[in-house]
Design a protein around this nucleic acid. Structure first.
Lengths: 199, 199, 199, 199
DNA sequence: GATGAATGAGTTTTCATTCAT
DNA sequence: AATGAATGAAAACTCATTCAT
């Protein structure tokens, strides 16, 4: 008999993912233990294994889901932005900041728990991250080619911009002083001013 | 009779600190185990305890030494820069990047292993970090008051700048393509352009 | 679905308690290690922790169970003895000796491992022991008030009697020369003669 | 060059013995560690080994010294008491109580840390203890032969008396309510009444 | 799908002891 | 006689994982 969508099993699996995101973000993957995770979900440690294969695979699944979503949504945002280089760069920045505000835990984990991944898993995530960085580098090069930007070095500039824009994950609080739009605007300016070519 | 300076004891203690920096940076504090650390130093795990009290205190000592040095050296750099707001801001940025290039492991650890500290220890380090951030915020405010800068928000701008400038720790390699001076120059421009007031 | 009574879990827990009594009695709490205990039960050291929280709590549980039983059974024996002071004193002595013959290990542990308990745990057991001593002191005072006993000091006499009567734990063997009844009779006489008032 | 009596070495050795008595009595031999002992004496753990060979031998030496003194002093007390059986029994009891009041820690240790001794050491101390018990058993048998005492069983009576008389170690405080003479008198009566033959 | 019980391998830390100085 | 540093062995306890039910 087929189980209906949102069945107990699926709900438990989702709860595990949510709790894992919270705990890994708060304590780090190595410091999170499965007893805690199980307790946070309200099941026994043994039951966790009905929904995941190993602790390692749980981490990998979380990261993979995040990187996949990030790449897809970024491509969608760029597609919607049209062909103009500056508009595309702004679209990238805007999407990056918004996504990072909304999914700061996934982002943090994907950035800082890479070292906790086994080799094949790590390689896969690193590859996706390179893909992502490549999109920004390409945008910077397009802009430079179009005479709109001026940079010392496209790769290093891209890294610096990503570090800055990703920094929001560190301090953002949903109930903070600034609205998301203000944060996006502020960061867009901070990022763009550093690369715009001046008359 | 006093032991000679540079005795085996002191050398061992220094070797432990160096190895700990390397291992914690590479794997994270929770994932580093004391067997590994001892092996890296060439002593037995038990001998570690002739030079530290607990694993936790080792981490704290490493962080405290770093934050103390960072604050002292920053103050020295600002003192040397004289009174001019822009010169002072540039001095801060330049020192920050250089320090972070040279001590990327300490920096990385101090940023990402805060969660591994016990409460009282964490509070102390967080306090020092606030002191550091406060210096940049003050510089931004001085510059704004002097009509030289224009920012959306001093605190958020400071955070964004620090995130960007600290990002070098992530990818910097001693034998990389760019010289330190190039990296400093590149980041100084990226950071300053975002906040300078335009005619 | 509820687990059946006497399940493996309960049986294991009981086996741990029995083995712990034996080992602590033979070697002392500090000298007993959990490897030995686990081996005696036939499980791995890690499995011990499915049935206890810490080594310390194991000791406390053992002592608490014993003191609770001792107080309850003593009260039952006194209740059964009726109101006559001498009969009550004899009932106390008889019960004390029999209980101590039967549970010599618990008694020994409760007497000599108090120092191994953490402060709050120790205070609780010491309180129960005072309750027990208070019952004998009260009996001695009743007997004195009724003109049946004559003592130098009720408290010291009670301590001396308890020391003597508890001494059986030191040398008693189930297969020894004397029957329990003989041992009880002998000690009742030794104890009573020292306090009876004479014509 | 010969060292003068009371030299530093001897004083340290004596301090170690005193501190060891205190710590073993308070915590038990297995629970006392040599770091603590060294700290109590004010030297380093390594220095302990200039005055003892092993932790085990320290315990044995303490016990041996005590048992030797106990046997010698008992014999002296009996010799002084003359030939009369009751006088000798009283002398034994009086001496036992006084000695146990004065050296309660040695006594306690000798009684309860036997299990911590290695086999050959344990056998030697147990032998001396049997010698001591034999003296009381002999006194009880002499008294019975002389028609002065009446006992159910000389050995068990001796054990019970020793347990009672040794009990003072448990609660005696130098600054307590009763004088030593009162404690001796009280225990002499408690012990004798239980065994005296009645017309 | 859930779980109590079990476990091998590992963790940090302690300990008695040694030894060069 | 004293000690800082070192250490093998062991301690209590934790952890991810398994499995019968």
């Amino acid at each position: 008999m087929a189980r209906i969508t949102g069945s107990n099993g699926e709900r438990t699996a989702a709860a595990i993912r949510q709790a894992a995101l919270r705990l890994i973000h708060a304590q780090g993957f190595a410091a999170m233990n499965l007893r805690e995770l199980a307790a946070a979900v309200g099941i026994s440690p043994a039951s966790l294994y009905n929904h995941m294969t190993t602790k390692q695979s749980l981490l990998f699944d979380l990261m993979l889901e995040h990187m996949t979503a990030l790449l897809e949504q970024t491509d969608a945002a760029l597609a919607a932005a049209g062909p103009e280089p500056l508009a595309r760069l702004e679209a990238f920045i805007g999407h990056h900041v918004l996504y990072h505000l909304e999914r700061k835990r996934e982002v943090y984990i994907a950035n800082f728990e890479l070292r906790a991944l086994d080799q094949p898993n790590a390689a896969r995530i690193i590859g996706m991250r390179h893909d992502y960085e490549a999109r920004l580098i390409a945008l910077l090069e397009e802009g430079t080619a179009a005479g709109l930007l001026s940079l010392g070095d496209a790769r290093i500039s891209a890294y610096a911009m990503l570090a800055m824009l990703t920094g929001v994950c560190t301090w953002y609080r949903v109930d903070g002083r600034l609205t998301r739009q203000e944060i996006v605007a502020l960061h867009t300016r901070l990022a763009l001013e550093g690369v715009l070519r001046r008359g």
